[in-house]
Write a protein that binds this DNA or RNA. Structure first.
Length: 460
RNA sequence: UCCGGUGUGGCGCAAUGGUAGCGCAAUCGGCUGUUAACCGAUGUGUUAGAGGUUCGAAUCCUCUCACCGGAGCCA
């Protein structure tokens, strides 16, 4: 007999079924039967199994069917006599695949997310983490769908890279040399005998390589792991995270912002439609304003203002900032929060940042004071997208590299893109885990990725 | 990395210098088409680690470690 998923059983037709899953809780009735709630992760809800104690072999397995154990149940799907569920499975035959002894850490009670992180191998079996992972999966799928529907080409940029000065953050080094005894020449480590024959790192961004393919296929996107060796200890930073980076030829900054806004709205709509039950849970237990917030983001135009206007807005406010806003300096987290949470109460896109505080590849505006960069700021989360129109003029780009003390020789191929058939183009990067955070309302980014990597943490 | 906080039975927490306790979970029993089941009983501790002050330390001091929150960096 074919196994049914609980997702299908919950609205299924009456008849004989086979269901397999993990026992979430059990309630015994001394009337001679037990209620077992089974979950197989196919949906948020459980299915109730009614197990009569007169079942063949029941007494032998009764003690094994505890919270956490895995069982297989053949039975009849029938309308439930009790309240709380429309239907249930009347067991005919039960097999225990794997019992869970009394030291099973996930008992039927609330556990803190901090505790669950210590048992990352078992936390997928909780309500919250199961819901997070289904939403995460939907978002990943919808990201591909969004771009595929628009003719973007999915591109795999390299994980191992040689550029050590992309400016996006500290990098993890990749080497096969013996750290306790590396080969040396004149006291310096000799990387010519390393695996790749030179010093290599894990990527901090696929953008530069993405531009190569945008200059041929017009619209591409990457969706892959990204590594930053920053000693960041916050609820929104990971050392290993997933980033989505579209890169589009012939897009100016306005087109770029349009795409980013459409993208986020599309993803939120998809989740509301396809993960209704999980989202209902987040709205009840994690953040009671979640559904309302998501609807607001979908229905309202993102506020767009220039960096200069943002500074002006901050300076005229009566808010007591730890760091007063001043033109030419980066916006502080408190500034970004004030704009998105207090002034506009919706997503905000700040653009045209001072040239001095942004990367070399961003297109210089007329006058040379600002560059065509943009950040999308979400209420209660902060920056979720950072992007820009890229500098396509060879001479200007070369000069900016020199101004920022970068060696043009290391970027010879990047410069070549401007030398041969250059085109105006733009792109942005979206932090995937931050998106999952925003959608679910989970406060800590470590609880929206299966295996979080943070400073001092690479377990599991 | 900086600032602040926390670390006590399996889990969540209380005890602020004087006999370490409560809730949940667990175990046993009772009851019930139950559903965060309910009622009763039982067991559970090197108070993160090391050192110090004190007649006496979970509590005060020093160091180490871990975790949490905020900042910086950014996605």
């Amino acid at each position: 007999m074919k196994r049914s998923k609980i997702k299908d059983l919950r609205n299924g037709k009456e008849g004989e079924v086979l269901v397999k899953g993990w026992v979430r809780t059990r309630r015994d009735s001394k009337g001679g039967f037990s209620f077992l709630e089974i979950n197989d992760g196919s949906c948020f809800g459980n299915i109730q199994v009614v197990a009569d104690h007169s079942l063949p072999g029941y007494s032998a397995i009764e003690k094994q069917m505890t919270t956490g154990s895995c069982i297989s149940v053949r039975g009849k799907l029938v309308a439930s006599q009790g309240k709380g569920q429309s239907n249930e499975v009347q067991a005919i035959e039960i097999e225990v695949y794997g019992p869970a002894p009394v030291d099973y850490p996930l008992q039927k009670k609330r556990h803190s997310f901090e505790f669950l992180r210590e048992i990352a191998h078992l936390r997928p079996r909780t309500n919250t983490f199961g819901a997070v992972m289904r939403v995460r999966n939907q978002l990943a799928f919808s990201i591909h769908r969004f771009f595929q529907e628009r003719g973007f080409v999915y591109l795999n940029t390299p994980i191992v890279t040689t550029s050590d000065c992309e400016g996006a953050g500290e990098m993890f080094q990749v080497t096969t040399l013996d750290p306790s005894n590396p080969p040396r020449v004149d006291g310096e480590i000799d990387y010519s005998s390393d695996f790749f024959g030179e010093k290599t790192f894990l990527t901090v961004s696929g953008q530069l390589e993405g531009e190569i393919f945008a200059m041929a296929l017009s619209e591409i996107y990457t969706f892959g792991p990204t590594f930053r060796a920053e000693n960041s200890n916050t609820s929104r930073h990971l050392a290993e995270f997933w980033m989505v980076e579209p890169e589009m030829a012939f897009y100016d900054l306005g087109d770029n912002m349009d795409l980013a806004e459409e993208f986020i709205k599309y993803l939120l709509s998809e989740v509301m439609e396809h993960c209704a039950e999980d989202m209902e849970f987040f709205n009840q237990r994690i953040d009671t304003t979640k559904l309302e917030t998501l609807k607001n983001v979908i229905d309202n135009r993102f506020e767009r203002l220039t960096y200069s206007d943002a500074i002006h807005e901050l300076q005229k406010s009566t808010e007591n900032f730890v760091y007063p806003a001043e033109w030419g300096f980066a916006l502080q987290a408190e500034h970004e929060r004030y704009l998105s949470e207090k002034v506009f109460k919706k997503p905000v896109i700040v653009f045209n940042y001072p040239e001095k505080i942004k990367s070399f590849y961003m297109k210089l505006n007329e006058g040379g004071e600002t560059v065509r960069a943009m950040d999308v700021l979400l209420p209660n989360l902060g920056e979720i997208i950072g992007g820009s129109q890229r500098e396509e003029n060879y001479e200007v780009l070369l000069q900016r590299m020199k101004d920022k003390d970068l060696d043009p020789k290391e970027y010879w191929w990047y410069l070549d893109l401007r030398k041969f058939g250059s085109a105006p183009h733009s792109g942005f990067g979206l932090g995937f885990e931050r998106l999952v955070q925003f959608v679910t309302g989970m406060e800590n980014i470590r609880d929206v990725i299966p295996f979080p990597r943070t400073p001092k943490h690479a377990k599991f």
